[in-house]
């Protein structure tokens, strides 16, 4: 376990360690669970990784809402496989977080008690089938931009989980884009459904990258320590640049009148994000914050007797094996 390390009173020994640590990660070096690390690095990673894991798990709910109504057997299987992957990804990242000396139990409790954050995007409702397309295309698209960066994070277990996740998530975005493309060349009702979903999911997707750089307290430190390699605004810009031509290709319109290509910077300029909405949802007052947490609590509470039964059975068997061995 890393030593306690308050920034105000660093012992000469810890100051030397910190310097060596920062030089190491500054050169792109990896940090492994048993290596010395500043307590704040450990805390930041626990915060960031558990938030990421919670997002995967809560993220199952909006899409899960459409599994039983998916309009074809193929779409049903794809959606099931995708939502299942999200459970898997939550699981990988929880396990990565556990290498920092915290149990999954504590992390889950923090989520259920409303003390931990998860991505605000999952506090929006999925109203039509096209929302499943929009989520795959935009939400997973944004996640991939972020996660491709995190696959190079300085903390080894996080980076390794991200590499696995990026490989698996490739199909998530494609299936979403395929849904949107199919709808937009479908019946007028289907095309309208696709445009409506895009209108509702576009801005929340941009918010997924977090506050702008001028208002992001953790960014500088995370970049210094090699956890993040790019700022929120850089990632957001990359996502917009990638997505604009994709929308054009399938005949859908992004709901931003200020969208302009800048020949000089070779980037797409976009309008101002509604930061009031962003903070409202972050603070728990989005359309589905309450429902999402309640669904997770219900699953956890209803499952308590199941987890207990399996443990009781294992304990009996262990006792039995010891008794027969003796």
């Amino acid at each position: 376990m890393p030593q306690k390390n308050t920034e105000s009173a660093l012992s000469p020994e810890d100051a030397a360690r910190l310097e060596a640590f920062e030089a190491h990660v500054g050169k792109g070096g990896y940090v492994e669970p048993k290596d010395w690390m500043p307590e704040r690095y450990r805390k930041q990673l626990i915060r960031m990784m558990s938030q990421h894991a919670h997002s995967e798990v809560v993220g199952m709910l909006p899409e899960g809402n459409w599994i039983t109504r998916a309009p074809s057997l193929r779409r049903k299987m794809v959606l099931l496989a995708k939502v299942q992957d999200e459970a898997g990804h939550g699981l990988y990242i929880y396990c990565g977080t556990e290498t920092l000396g915290v149990d999954r139990e504590e992390l889950v409790e923090a989520l259920l008690a409303g003390k931990a954050k998860y991505s605000s995007i999952f506090n929006y409702p999925t109203l039509t089938w096209a929302d499943i397309g929009a989520i795959g295309w935009l939400v997973d698209g944004a996640a991939i931009v972020n996660q491709t960066m995190l696959a190079k994070a300085s903390y080894g277990p996080y980076a390794r989980a991200m590499i696995r996740i990026c490989k698996e998530e490739n199909f998530h975005k494609r299936q979403g884009y395929e849904i949107m493309a199919t709808l937009s060349k479908g019946t007028p009702a289907q095309k309208a459904m696709a445009q409506d979903a895009l209108d509702r999911w576009w801005w929340p997707s941009l918010m997924m990258f977090g506050p702008s750089d001028t208002n992001s307290p953790n960014s500088a430190e995370l970049i210094k320590w090699g956890v993040k390699k790019k700022t929120n605004d850089e990632l957001r810009q990359r996502f917009v640049d990638l997505t604009v031509p994709q929308a054009e290709a399938i005949g859908l319109t992004l709901p931003d009148p200020d969208l302009r290509y800048d020949e000089e910077t070779k980037h797409w300029n976009f309008g101002e994000i509604d930061w009031d909405e962003f903070w409202t949802v972050v603070k728990g007052n989005g359309p589905c914050n309450k429902e999402r947490l309640e669904a997770r609590r219900r699953a956890h509470d209803d499952g308590a007797w199941v987890r207990a039964a399996a443990e009781a059975y294992a304990a009996k068997r262990n006792g039995h094996n010891r008794a027969t061995a003796a």
């Binding site: 556990e98 149990d103 999954r104 409790e109 259920l112 008690a113 409303g114 609590r297 308590a304 987890r307």
Partner: peptide, 16 residues
Amino acid sequence: MTQGDHPVGDTQWPLW
């Protein structure tokens, strides 16, 4: 059951 009121000894099972 409400938040913070989970059964004593409830765990996520051992890690493998």
